[in-house]
Design a protein around this nucleic acid. Structure first.
Lengths: 209, 209
DNA sequence: ATAAACATACATTCGTGTATGTATGTTGTC
DNA sequence: GACAACATACATACACGAATGTATGTTTAT
């Protein structure tokens, strides 16, 4: 039953499609390879041909999402902007509206952020995940420090609580939205939500109390 | 091998202690009853005597935490306050510092919010969980509406994005903090973080842009 | 012809649930 | 207050399915 190369890539993609939907629906640990195979209309043999095990499927999903994401952020970072805080604000809005309008991304992010538990089985993936997070945290700090030098934020401001606020807020939006996509109109409200937080940061730093 | 009633309650508590630690460490799905029994220094027989199955252990943890929490919120709600927004703000700070200083609560909340996946096995617990969340959402709305009538927020303000902002932010703090308790000094920063968000809400509503 | 791209079959492990055994606390009775 | 009779609080043993990984068979592109 050898297929042509294109057909093989297609079945591999089909397995990933089936996996991400099942993972998003029932969670990584609660999904068996048999179920994935059934949904993808192949046998477990096909899965074991393309992937070493279930964890490697997870890894593939992880990789497929974060490579383009990091590219986007870095390209945005390169073009200098006179108002770094505002730039960061727009980046947040963009990533939210992006999430709100991209179904595939919703699925994968749901798997990565709420429907999996990083135990020993996914230790490898967790390391990568943590590395990504540290990167974005550094990036956030960089924006903030630029804003302080720039004068947008007063001299001597502590960047840490600001980074924490933004990071926590974004995480909350992602998790809560992905947990019940239909419950919120994220696309319509993204800008207001982000503005709330950034306005508060500005206001708190310039005029405490 | 019959024990006295007190001893029995003690073993039951021991099982719960072992369970919550293992759940928090490796996740609900990745923890077997055998492991729990081993850690609690009993056999699986003891577990099946006190609980119907693993899901009921989860339920017991859930119950043990949320009963006192709801009490606290409701008692706070009863005493009328002239500045409802500020009252809500203090409630948020309080629940964060409370979390930061209560290890047991950290464990249970970690299990409930990040280390479990509400599949069919936990369907019963998920219903309760969702009910709790709807309650607190209504509560949030109530505070906001009081602030609008009060004049703290301008007439005609839409409560929804405000509630979303607070809810998302709080969720993010919980999840991110519980994910790596040692990474943040939540107790020291709780007030600043919450102030960021509430200041932004005030500022955005009174003077848009 | 040979190796890719699977399907099929099998062995093994692991976890659950339940049935049963058993020693001990508890309770009523005289 | 002593002693059955019973219920309690587990421990042990077993049966069962589910999931994994691997070994092997089969077909077909190249």
């Amino acid at each position: 039953m050898k297929r042509t190369k294109d057909e093989a890539e297609q079945t591999k993609a089909g397995i990933l499609d089936a996996a991400v939907e099942l993972f998003a629906e029932k969670g990584f640990a609660n999904t068996s390879l048999t179920e994935i195979a059934k949904k993808a209309e192949v046998t477990r043999g096909a899965i074991y041909w393309h992937f070493k095990n279930k964890a490697e499927i997870f890894d593939a999903l992880h990789e497929s999402l974060f490579v383009p994401l990091t590219d986007m952020i870095l390209s945005d970072m390169n073009e200098e902007h006179e108002q770094p805080l505002h730039q960061l604000q727009q980046l947040c809005v963009k990533s939210l509206t992006d999430l709100a309008t991209n179904y595939r991304k919703q699925l994968v992010m749901k798997v990565l952020m709420v429907q999996c538990i990083y135990g020993e089985e996914l230790a490898c993936a967790k390391q990568k995940h943590d590395a990504r997070k540290r990167e974005s945290l550094k990036l956030f700090s960089l924006y903030i420090e630029k804003a302080i030098k720039n004068g947008t934020l007063p001299q001597g401001t502590d960047p840490e609580p600001i980074v924490m606020t933004i990071c926590f807020f974004m995480k909350g939006v992602f998790v809560e939205f992905l947990n019940d996509t239909a419950a919120y109109n994220l696309e319509a409200n993204a800008e207001i939500l982000v503005r709330h937080v950034f306005e508060g940061i500005l206001n708190c730093s310039s005029g405490p109390r």
